[in-house]
Every structure is written in C-alpha cells, then in structure tokens.
Design a protein around this nucleic acid. Structure first.
Length: 706
RNA sequence: GGGCGCGUAGCUCAGCGGUAGAGCAUCGCCUUCACACGGCGGGGGUCACAGGUUCAAUCCCUGUCGCGCCCACCA
C-alpha cells in the first residue's frame, strides 16, 4: 500500500502552466529526462514538442509523444526515468533520451550523473536542496522530495494507491532497477530450432500439456542476459585491450590474435571478470559432461540422451536452454523425451521452504521407515502432472507394504519355496499354479504398460495389488493346505516351484521401486549371483496352458469364499463356530469345484464341511446366491432370523432397483436401435442375471417364512 | 490482463462416454502356526454448480463459482 503523488512540472515558456504527472516513486524524479504523453491525448497531445522544467533539478526536459503513455492511467502524462524503470528505459531508447542514474548500488541517492545539470530557478529548483539528498536512502529521499515539492506548491495532490512491487527474496526489500552493462545472448535465434524440434516431435514432453509452457516461453523469448557478477562459474570469454576495445574469443590465444590484428602489435589484455549465468553453463550439461568439445566415445554413445526427468518449475531455466544449446552446438536435440513430474510438497501442499520450516528431510524419513518405503511412497503418489504431498504418515502407510513383501517371502522360505532353474512355467498342471501364472502375466503387463507410459503411480499400484491381494491374500492361503503335512507330495512340489518362480518375478518387478529389500531377498533365496538383481532381465509374460479354465475356477472359488465370509460376518457368526456349507441347485461343475477346493474352502470360509443339499433347507439357515447356486448355511440358534430376512430383502431390493433401471433402458427404442450391439447385449444379460438372482433371493426369503 | 492445472467417499488421489474405484481413516469381528506395519467383513459419494451435445455424461462442449500455479503489467 502506497501513494500516488501528482507532481506539477512547469511548462517551459508558459509561466503558470503545468503538466501534471502521477508517480508512485517521486524520488526517481531526479533522473527524469522527459515527460511522455499519448499522441492522441486531447489535453496533453498538443504539448508534444514543447519542454517542461524538471522541478528541484531545474533541467529542461522534452515532452514526447509515445503510445506507452496510457491516457487512462494517472493524469495521462507520465514522467520518464530511463535509468530506473524498464518501460521508461524503452521510451528513452525510442526518443534518444539521456539516462542518468540517480541511485547507486546501495539504492542511495547519487548526484554524480546529474551534478552538471543542476540549476537554480527561484520557486522551482534549488541545487542546495538537491545536494542535501546525496547519500540519503531512497526512502528518506522520497520524504524530503515530497516535502520540498509541497513547500514549492508543486505537489498537486496525494492519493492512496495499492500496487505490486517486486521484493528481493533474500533481503525482502523492494528491488530497484539499475542501469548496468551486461553480456547478452541472442536467444531468439537459438529458440527457433528448439521450437521446431518439439513441434515435429523430435522431443516429446510427458505429460504433453507442458509443451504449451515450453512454447509460450520460447515464442516470446527475450535477449538472455548471461553475465553475472559472481566469482564462481565459467568466465565470460571476453578480453579488453588498453583502450577498452573488446575481443570475444574461445580462449586467450584467440583473443590475443584478434588484438594483434586490431592494434598491429601485441597488447596486454584483461579478461572480463563476470561469469556466465549458471543456466548457461547448465545448458551445456548434456554434452559437456561427456567430454565435449572433444569428440569422445561417450559423446557418440550418449548424445542425444533418452529421457530427461525433471520438474516443471525448471522448464524455462534448464530444459529450454539445454534444447537450444544442444541443437546449436551438437546439431541434435539433447533428449527424446522430457518427463515432467510435480514438486514434492509438505503434507498440507505447501511448498517446502527453509524459512517456513516445513522442509521434509528424506534422511529422517529413511531412518524412520526405510529407503524403500520412501522410494515406493513417492513412486505411488506421483500422478501425472501433479504435485506430491508428502508426509511421514504417507511413508508409514507404504512401509506396511514393504513389510508385507518381506513377510510373504519369509513364509515362502519357511515352506521350502526355493528357486529352481529348471522350473518350467509351461509345464504346471494344478489350476492354482496356472491361475497364479496367469495373474502374474497380467500384473507384468500392467506394470510394464504403466512404466512405458511414465505412470509411476499405476506401476506402483499394479505391484501393490498383485503382491498383497493376489499373491498373499489368495495364492499363499490356497497353497497352505497343499503344503500341509499329508498333502500330495507332487502337488506340494509344484506349488513350491511356482511360488518360488513367481516370487522371483515379483522381486524383478518391484526392484525399481523397492531396491534394497528386493535385492536382499534375491540374494537370500539364491535367485542368482549376489547383487545380480539389477542386471536381470525384466519379467515377461509366459504361455500358460489352461489359463482361462483355471482363472474361471479360481474366480468362482474366491467368490464363494467371499460370499460365505460376508454372510457370516453380517450375521455376527463368530469364527469359533464353523458351519457346514450346503449347495442348493448347484451344477455339476460347481460341485466339482467344491470337491477340488474343499480344504481351502474349509479353512478360508470357516466351513465344517461342504456338500450338495439333497433335502429341504434346514430351519434357521442363512442363505446367499452365487450364480445358479443357492448357498445355505445351517446356523439355527446362531443367527437372528429377522436380521437374516432383512439382509436378504436388502439384497433383493438393491438388485431390483438395478434391474428396473436396466429394463427401462431396454424399453427405450432409441437405446436399442442406436447403442452398439455389445452394449445392448450386455444390458440384456445383466437384466437376465439380475432377475434370476432376485428370484433365488425371493425363494430364500419365502423359505424363511414369517 | 494472458495462460495452465485442479475441484470425485472424512483425507490423499485414480478413472474420463455405457449403472462410481483404490490406499489411508472409520465401524464390527478375529491375539487362526508369514505378517496386529496383520486377517476377515461393513458403512460412506445427487463425481463443485448451471446449461448444451448424445440413445446414454463424472467423463465431451459452453458458462459460473472456488482453489493453486506460471507469465506479463506495476504512472
């Protein structure tokens, strides 16, 4: 929040007439060298060509016409201080104005460059006053100048004004534009090939939307100031002769040769003390690290690179500049793909900052949860083009997964699942083996596709799901009876083989995200030479005979077990009270499946026995529908019949509501005629299945009586 | 002022034309011989709002509101 000061500048040769300028920075008026007005301005336009007297200083300055002056802003006339304002600088260049600096490097007033123009004009300018300003801070000078103008009745008015002023991120004080001599790079020339390379797909951004950001910057690129007043960095390759003539060359010898040509003899040269902008040097990184400018083996082999992984905040600074430099110096793009990820932020989404104190120290997270947990967490949370909100609790969550993997492997070890180099996945015979291998194939495809699409989150999720939900929750549980004492030794051997094989595939699949634990397990199980996991081939799907049949069967068994568990839990039947499972109306296929999986069903569904129901449904039974079969759990005395009735009715009503919607859809002639056949067929099947299940549920309800 | 992105379950986020998903959190049951950093089961969403396109919209289009960021401006 500041003020807008309206200053009266007397018009030369017209006593008593003023041109009024509005300014937020009255202290810079010492350096004014013109007043600009819009050529079409109704009041001030005619003044173009006349001159004004700069108050306090007494200098005569031109009133120039320039479209930069906005008739709508301030008074429509604007004071021009070329040395301390970017726009004024441009106006100054257009009108060939002097550009005296009136602030020094400490942003204190300096009169060095205007000392010889100070003039005494009674009532307007007083060199003695101006000289008191020398060395004062810009803030003190502002107060003094405003007071003096007020005393001289050259201050029209003051209005409150809010504007945005850039502040330095270190000192926190307003930044002061200052005229200095710097080296520039003609970035416009370099930008063209870089823009073309992205337009033609020679370099691709992932996600693609970032190409817009790249184009926006590149198509409006400004001359690049490449000199910095620092001591660390590549030094500016420019040398000065005794008379200040500059020689730009690759090295001192080149500069000396140029100087010899220029002077006709050798002259001592002094190199510019400035260094290159760090981003200029960084722009060379893709090839300077490979030994450039020598044509090394590494340059040949590794330029251009494959993928650049970086954050969006650095597209302008680094990516764009590497593109420009690579194309200019090497004649080819520096990388084929630019993978742009989000920023890691704190748990509340705030950008990390030392001063805010919300910096997450990865070493602390590693100490608490492990490097693998941290790595997997970031992997899992990295959505496309999205920032990652990271906090200890998120890492803690995924540590559970790493532990799960470790414990699963421990179980495998305890059950003798040792890797066997002669194991042939195509030769397995058990449905469980075939099912597991088919699921493994699917997981490998999911993970591979995700990685190829740079979807690290999907890759992590695919691994998570497969290990936890498929391998641990179902495979290992189904395997337990087959590995138990007294089980068929041949079956047990096959399960051990397939388990060890799939664990090996899991370790390979997860190694990029969980490097330490997978390597440890790889070594511990002896899958290969110690520390060889990193060099092992990426897993590929294998042919699995009878996969479809095995998947259909296991899928059915899983659904049966889940259904029974669900009914028991909802009816509050404690695990300590197993019950028989009776199947009513089961097909011979279903009966066969039950026979083959009897041990697993007993164990996982808390069943005392499983058999086909040949008599009436026993009194007090819970019931559920699985395809053509009605599952009957005789639990008389253990369940509340009213609750069971309510549960079945709820199921029936939910299905009925769905069926109604589907039926309505199918009654819509437009839908049937315009929707794709598959979709119509799918809806017909859905309706049919729903109606059949409703009928079975209703029958179950009827059996319960009142 | 210009541009980009985001608003989906309590939280963090996927999905992006065919009847809403995950993880965590929550609730209930379970100290079952890999794992309580665990197992099983449940509840929870008019997919920001308003129009439009379509047989069908969380998904496409237009607009509105809210949030974040980038660039420009800074009399």
């Amino acid at each position: 929040k500041g003020s807008l000061w309206y200053l009266r500048y007397p018009i030369e040769g017209s006593p008593g007439e003023f041109i009024i300028v509005a300014t937020t920075r009255p202290e810079t008026m010492l350096g004014d060298t013109a007043v600009a007005v819009h050529p079409d301005h109704p009041v001030y336009g005619p003044l173009i060509g006349k001159r004004a007297i700069l108050p306090l200083v007494g200098r005569s300055i031109p009133i120039v016409g320039d479209t930069y002056a906005d008739p709508e802003k301030g008074t429509g006339a604007v004071k021009i201080t070329p040395a301390h304002d970017f726009n004024d600088f441009e106006v100054g260049r257009r009108h060939d104005l002097p550009m005296p600096s009136v602030l020094d490097r400490q942003a204190n007033v300096t009169l060095d460059e205007i000392a010889d123009v100070l003039a005494a004009l009674p009532g307007v300018a007083d060199p003695d006053f101006v000289r008191t300003l020398a060395g004062q801070s810009r803030f003190a000078a502002r107060s003094a100048i405003v007071a003096e103008l007020e005393r001289l009745e050259l201050l029209e008015k003051i209005e409150p004004h809010t504007n945005q002023v850039p502040h330095g991120d270190r000192g926190g004080v307003p930044v002061e534009p200052l005229l200095t001599t710097q080296w520039y790079c003609n970035a416009g020339v370099l930008a063209k090939p870089a823009i073309e390379a992205v337009e033609t797909g020679k370099t691709v951004f992932v996600p693609k939307q970032w190409e817009n950001t790249f184009f926006a910057w590149m198509r409006d690129i400004q001359p690049w100031c490449i000199s910095r007043q620092l001591w660390w960095g590549h030094r500016i390759p420019a040398w000065y002769g005794p008379d200040g003539t500059v020689f730009v060359a690759k090295d001192p010898d080149g500069a000396a040769a140029q100087a010899r040509d220029h002077y006709g003899r050798d002259e001592p040269l002094v190199q510019d003390e400035d260094v290159l902008d760090t981003w200029f040097s960084s722009a060379l990184w893709p090839f300077s690290t490979l030994g450039w400018p020598e044509n090394t083996k590494e340059v040949t082999r590794y330029y251009p690179g494959d993928v650049l992984v970086t954050g969006f905040d650095i597209i302008f600074f680094w990516v764009a500049r590497m593109m420009m430099m690579g194309l200019h110096m090497m004649g080819d793009v520096p990388f084929r793909t630019v993978y742009i990820h989000g920023l890691v932020r704190d748990e509340r989404g705030q950008k990390m900052s030392k001063s805010r104190g919300n910096v997450i120290d990865p070493l602390e997270l590693i100490d608490s949860y492990g490097a693998d947990a941290l790595r997997f967490t970031i992997c899992a949370l990295t959505g496309p083009g999205r920032d990652v909100k990271l906090g200890a609790s998120r890492v803690q969550d995924y540590r559970g997964f790493v532990t799960k993997l470790w414990n699963a492997a421990r179980f495998c070890e305890m059950n003798g699942m040792q890797p066997d180099p002669t194991f042939d996945p195509g030769a397995v015979t058990l449905p469980l083996s075939r099912w597991l291998l088919a699921e493994t194939n699917a997981a490998i495809l999911d993970a591979t596709n995700a990685l190829e699409a740079y979807r690290l989150d999907e890759y992590a999720a695919a691994g998570y799901r497969f290990v936890w939900n498929t391998f641990c929750d179902w495979f290992l549980e189904f395997a337990k009876p087959l590995l138990a004492e007294g089980a068929n030794p041949a079956d047990a051997a096959e399960i051990r083989g397939v388990g060890a094989y799939v664990l090996g595939q899991i370790l390979r699949l997860l190694h990029p995200a969980i490097p330490f634990v997978t390597e440890e397990l790889w070594d511990r199980f002896g899958y290969g030479e110690p520390c060889s996991l990193i060099g092992t081939a990426w897993p590929a799907p294998v042919a699995v005979p009878g996969a479809e049949q095995a998947r259909a069967e296991l899928d059915w068994v899983v659904r049966l077990i889940t259904l029974v568990r669900s009914v028991r839990a909802e009816m509050n039947v404690p695990p300590s009270k197993p019950s028989p499972i009776l199947l009513q109306g089961a097909s011979t296929e279903s009966i066969g499946r039950v026979d083959r999986w009897i041990e697993a069903i007993r164990r996982l569904a808390r069943a005392s026995d499983v058999s086909a129901l040949t008599t009436d449904v026993p009194k007090g039974s819970a019931q559920a529908v699985l395809d053509e079969t009605t599952i009957v759990l005789p639990l008389e005395g253990l369940i509340d019949i009213a609750a069971e009735r309510a549960r079945l009715a709820k199921e029936r009503d939910k299905l009925a509501a769905d069926a109604k919607k589907t039926a309505q859809k199918l009654e819509n002639a437009d839908f049937v005629s315009r929707a794709p056949e598959e979709v119509v067929a799918e809806n017909r099947d859905r309706l049919e299945a729903a109606l059949a299940e409703i009928a079975r549920l209703q029958a179950a309800l009827d059996r319960l009586g009142n």
